[in-house]
Design a protein around this nucleic acid. Structure first.
Lengths: 341, 341
DNA sequence: TTGTAGGCGTTATCAC
DNA sequence: GTGATAACGCCTACAA
């Protein structure tokens, strides 16, 4: 089934069929309706590769994922092993669907060059790249091509005519999380950092320290670990073991995984959350709605990272130049912080 | 950049470039290496739409999702609102990537016809359709086209030359879950069903009842609800309120959400899980690794539904006829069932 | 308002 | 072993 068949059936030429499909104005009502009827009857849809080849947009965007940073043990993890990345990926898919775009997902890795084929040749109108904060040579090369790209969570900022970037405002997040705890009457706040080598962690910690300073609070406690439940659990467990009279009333965790581990450790030591100790996380993962207690968190993900990236991409596709964007931050109140303001 | 440019640079014809790209045997080593060098130097990749138009496979499969069944309040939910669907979708993406396929994700809905364009015209080599168990007219129509399709979780079995189906073995799952509890010395087992209208629920409950019968256990207790945490929570809370001397020692929950809600309700009533009451869930969601206690569950998802669907699809693409498949079931032991065998 | 024809970048079928 | 050429299905000037 193709436009020639439709044309023959409708008694018109292929170009007329094309005009109908693409909503050209200069076409008579009769012809249009006649053609549309035939199209409908024959369940005809234009061939996407052919349309693309002929220069049209496809309504498909690429989602390129660099998984090198998602580690599991010593090995590279897949997206589905991580609730965080699963949520981020499906959020991008959902946001795209919402504005009528479909998403072509591919991984960036050295083994396969599938992603290059997809990227280098436009079945896609543009792409969002999740780099996991990693400087990856290939990504730098990609940005030099003519494709429209949005770089997500790529802290080493690059930008050009065809490239935009979107990053969470980690500093502000750290600041607001700390501020929220202070407003709820906490003065002894422990901050558990994620991977100390990542800018993300450093900026969140900077926000924490700056906020304490601004509020004239001297006691700052920072322990560095990893962005995992196990790490949060271990750090708090060890801390409680080594400090019989623990002296913090709240924890600002580097992300929700750490928060969850910290909460488990506290609970196992018969310290109630949030009555005895409050905990605030970061990332606002959906997971946080299913734990006990549910996790109060810093939101930059939900309706932010995904939708902003997509909007930026659409702007690029529409011909606007690349820009740099930092997402807004808000506290999502759940039950792991005791309300006492 | 296209094959003509490469051809000119290499001093050969376009056909020769094509032969090199597609690994044709009848070509001299010299020519091949010369062309490959030019290709490399110029960072050239063949144009996917053009290849597809000329009749080649693309290495892209479609993932079509019918979201009508994923409800949130009264409204239709997005995939990212559901940890279950997020995990399923990313598992399929991961499994595909693993064998070198990229995934084009699109939703099936009445508002947009994007999915039809994608489906009806082959940038994709085939598609997996997640129907959420819903009889949807459009899906039936799709199976009549010539595309290669795998229907996931579509209990009303359809199969033809181009269509395979994959379903979880809900009956066996219900049976094995119950058997596992019995083996751990439970005789009073409450089963909390999900949506009673869905075959999924009915089959799990059938498995439960058959297993009790096979083990000569008279007491069967079934309460029907929905596939949600809230439902599990409410049912157990109400039960405990109305039965001061509750008489079950274990719960078989219709899925992990229900299990989670049930556990919360038990804990709030100072009933310890698993010491006082054991709970087993269904679906083996990643979520179950982050709760306290972690949730023992019936696994059909992990490395099953996703990978089997994909294998089936690849078989179809390779020209084999459609088949019907039911996934294997296994118990994943975590900490919500007390080991007492 | 409609039809004709060239081109998009490949692959495949012929020749040579 | 390699080069010309006709598809693949569509879009878009240009002509009428």
């Amino acid at each position: 089934m193709n436009s020639s068949v439709i044309a023959k059936l409708a008694g018109v030429s292929r170009s007329t069929v094309s005009r109908v499909i693409n909503n050209y104005p200069d076409i008579s009502k009769e012809t249009r309706e006649k053609v549309l009827k035939i199209i409908e009857e024959n369940n005809y849809y234009p061939n996407l590769p052919a349309q693309k080849l002929a220069g049209k947009k496809t309504g498909v965007i690429g989602l390129l994922i660099y998984t090198g940073e998602i580690k599991k043990g010593g090995n590279y993890k897949k997206v589905s092993d991580s609730l965080y990345y699963s949520e981020l990926v499906t959020k991008i898919i959902d946001a795209s669907e919402n504005i009528g775009y479909s998403v072509l997902v591919s991984y960036i890795n050295k083994k396969s060059s599938n992603w290059k084929k997809i990227f280098a040749n436009g079945i896609i109108d543009g792409a969002i790249i999740i780099s996991g904060g990693k400087k990856y040579k290939e990504i730098n090369n990609l940005t030099k091509l003519e494709n429209k790209i949005v770089l997500l969570d790529y802290e080493d900022y690059i930008s050009n005519e065809n490239t935009s970037t979107v990053n969470p405002n980690n500093f502000e997040g750290g600041y607001k999380a700390t501020e929220y705890l202070i407003k709820n009457n906490h003065k002894k706040i422990l901050h558990i950092m994620g991977d100390i080598k990542r800018k993300m962690s450093i900026n969140r910690a900077r926000g924490y320290k700056t906020c304490l300073k601004d509020n004239r609070i001297q006691d700052s406690m920072i322990i560095a670990g990893e962005f995992s439940e196990q790490s949060g659990y271990k750090i708090v467990t060890d801390y409680l073991k080594n400090n019989k009279n623990f002296d913090f009333t709240a924890i600002f965790a580097g992300n929700d995984y750490i928060a969850l581990g910290a909460i488990k450790a506290l609970q196992e030591n018969n310290i109630k959350v949030p009555e005895d100790v409050s905990v605030i996380g970061f990332d606002n993962m959906l997971l946080g709605e299913y734990t006990s207690p549910t996790i109060t968190s810093v939101n930059h993900l939900d309706k932010q990272i995904a939708e902003k990236s997509l909007n930026k991409l659409i702007n690029l596709i529409d011909g606007e130049p690349g820009t740099k964007e930092i997402t807004c931050i808000e506290i999502v109140e759940r039950n792991s912080v005791f309300k006492n303001s």
